[in-house]
Simulated scan of single mutants.
Amino acid sequence: MGALLKPGDLVVDAGANIGNHSLYFAGIRGCKVVAFEPIPQTAKVLKHNIEINFLDELIELRNRALGATRGNAVLDAYDENNVGAARLTSRPGLHFEAKFVVSTLDEEFFSQTIRLLKVDVEGMDLEVLEGAQAIINRDRPIITCEAATETSRGRLLDWAAATGYTWVGTYCATATLILAPNEVDRRNDIELIRSAQARSSSLRTTDLEARLLRSNRYTERLHREALALNDELTLKLESLHQQVEGLEARMKDGIRRD
């Protein structure tokens, strides 16, 4: 995605977690970032990461959840050993038990046009996009959105087609789709993304081939060392066998003399 971004571009990171993407966008690409992270413990780590990397002026942290409509949510799943998998759920009528206020991107204020919208909110991804329909129609940002299942992928692609977006690539261990606007004047974005994806694929292939070569060389070395060790053990066993035979012969000779 770096090829599409230049210093000063605005990136919205919905589901920033501890800041892996936000830090890259701001620290490496020089972008302005608005990072949304609702879980207090996670947001605390994100804030610390922003500060120790001296990115306070580029990254704005908003400690709230996002969805399709304004409302309330509760924590549906949380594992302190995998905070990235924390999941919220929103239901009508949640009041006293609700721990999180849910906002929408359309209700949020942004000081400039959004260049890239990254969405990774553990199952509520499409809801975040639905709550950003007006700003997406206005700014037409590049969108990256997680689609962990075939069902969520299908729903996301249906939404993209209805919104005038094209799927142009996928990245990350958990499938994250890259969507670009269909407009003719944005074709260059599509070509840049596809070119970057091709280069990335080529680099991964080259890296894999290099790793396999190193692995093969290592295996060959282990095989040679095993053969050498086997030869050494064989010689030692033969020597030991000869010593035993000599000892037995001397014992027999001593018995005969007695």
Rank of each mutant, 00 (worst) to 15 (best):
M124D: 11
A147F: 02
Q133Y: 11
S201W: 08
E97W: 00
I136P: 07
V119C: 07
A86M: 03
G84D: 01
L94N: 08
T113S: 08
T144D: 09
T149E: 10
R87S: 15
T113A: 06
D120H: 14
V168Y: 03
A85Y: 11
F96I: 10
V102P: 12
T176L: 00
V128F: 05
S201N: 12
A162R: 15
V121P: 07
A210N: 15
G93C: 02
A132R: 02
S103R: 07
S200C: 04
A162P: 11
D106Q: 07
D106E: 09
E122F: 07
F96T: 13
A134G: 12
V184P: 10
D125P: 00
I190W: 03
L203V: 15
D207I: 05
A147Y: 04
A134N: 13
E191G: 00
Q133P: 08
E127K: 14
R221W: 12
A148C: 08
A148G: 08
V102T: 04
L126P: 00
Y218H: 13
H95N: 13
G123D: 09
Y218T: 13
I178E: 04
V119Q: 01
T144K: 05
H95V: 13
L177H: 09
L213E: 12
E97N: 06
G169A: 02
E150N: 15
R115G: 01
D106V: 06
G154N: 04
D185A: 07
A162D: 11
D158V: 09
M124H: 15
D120A: 07
L157D: 04
S202E: 06
A85L: 13
A147V: 14
P141Y: 01
T144A: 06
I143H: 06
V168F: 03
V184T: 08
E150V: 15
E209C: 14
V121I: 13
Y171C: 01
T205N: 04
A85M: 14
V101E: 14
V83W: 08
G169M: 02
G123W: 02
G169H: 02
R211I: 12
I142K: 01
N188R: 11
A173N: 13
V128L: 08
A86C: 04
I143N: 10
D125G: 00
W167C: 05
D120L: 07
A175C: 11
